[in-house]
Amino acid sequence: MKDQNEVRLTGTTDKTRRIATKTGAPMAEVILTVRQDRFRITAFGNVAEHLLARANAGDRLSVTGSLSVSSWKDESTGEWRNSFAVQAWGVELHGEKVSYERKQQAPPVKSGRRNEGYTAGPNDPF
């Protein structure tokens, strides 16, 4: 059996925001509440466009994607912290299913660094 990194979550959207990219490609970030846990969902391409056009706070959202962990050092306490994020390649919102057009996806860049993802700021909800 091959190693896989696939997660499926269904919950309620809390916030949706557009993220500016250097290339101008569409990117969206959604905070998804699943029971009492909150997850950062990032999406690109047509999935991002769909979320930005249709997702509102309180909507029911199902996400399929890959799970990643970001680590950072809290400047005030000096402790290392972690947050979990899902890069969505498929979503279902208002009964409409949308999946990422993979032909547009660039291959991942391997840097060998632990912190390849999002770096949390002081006002990060996680």
Rank of each mutant, 00 (worst) to 15 (best):
S71N: 14
S71V: 10
S71Y: 09
W72Y: 12
W72C: 01
W72N: 03
W72K: 01
W72I: 02
W72F: 13
K73C: 06
D74R: 06
D74I: 06
D74W: 06
D74E: 13
D74C: 08
D74H: 07
E75Q: 12
E75M: 02
S76A: 15
S76H: 08
S76P: 00
T77M: 06
T77H: 02
T77P: 04
G78I: 05
E79V: 10
E79H: 12
E79M: 13
E79A: 15
E79L: 15
E79S: 09
W80I: 12
W80Y: 12
W80L: 09
R81S: 05
R81V: 02
R81C: 10
R81M: 11
R81F: 04
N82G: 04
N82I: 07
S83T: 15
F84P: 00
F84R: 08
F84D: 03
F84E: 07
F84M: 10
F84H: 10
F84I: 13
A85V: 00
A85C: 06
A85W: 00
A85L: 06
A85S: 15
V86K: 02
V86S: 01
V86A: 02
V86C: 02
V86Y: 03
Q87H: 11
Q87D: 10
Q87K: 11
Q87R: 11
Q87V: 12
A88W: 06
A88S: 07
A88T: 06
A88Y: 08
A88L: 08
W89C: 03
W89Y: 12
W89E: 07
G90H: 04
G90A: 15
G90D: 01
G90K: 12
G90N: 03
V91D: 00
E92I: 08
E92L: 03
E92C: 06
L93V: 04
L93N: 02
L93S: 01
L93C: 06
L93K: 03
L93A: 05
H94D: 13
H94I: 01
H94S: 12
H94Y: 09
G95F: 04
G95M: 04
G95T: 03
E96H: 07
E96I: 11
E96T: 12
E96S: 08
K97E: 11
K97Q: 13
K97I: 07
K97S: 11
K97F: 10
V98M: 04
V98W: 00
V98S: 03
V98F: 02
S99Q: 14
S99P: 00
S99T: 12
S99F: 12
S99A: 10
S99N: 14
Y100L: 15
Y100S: 04
Y100D: 03
Y100G: 00
E101A: 14
E101Q: 15
E101D: 15
R102P: 00
R102E: 10
R102W: 12
R102F: 12
K103D: 13
K103P: 00
K103M: 08
K103V: 11
K103A: 14
K103F: 09
K103Y: 10
K103Q: 12
Q104Y: 14
Q104N: 14
Q104D: 15
Q105I: 07
Q105Y: 06
A106Q: 15
A106L: 14
A106V: 05
A106M: 11
P107E: 09
P107M: 05
P107W: 02
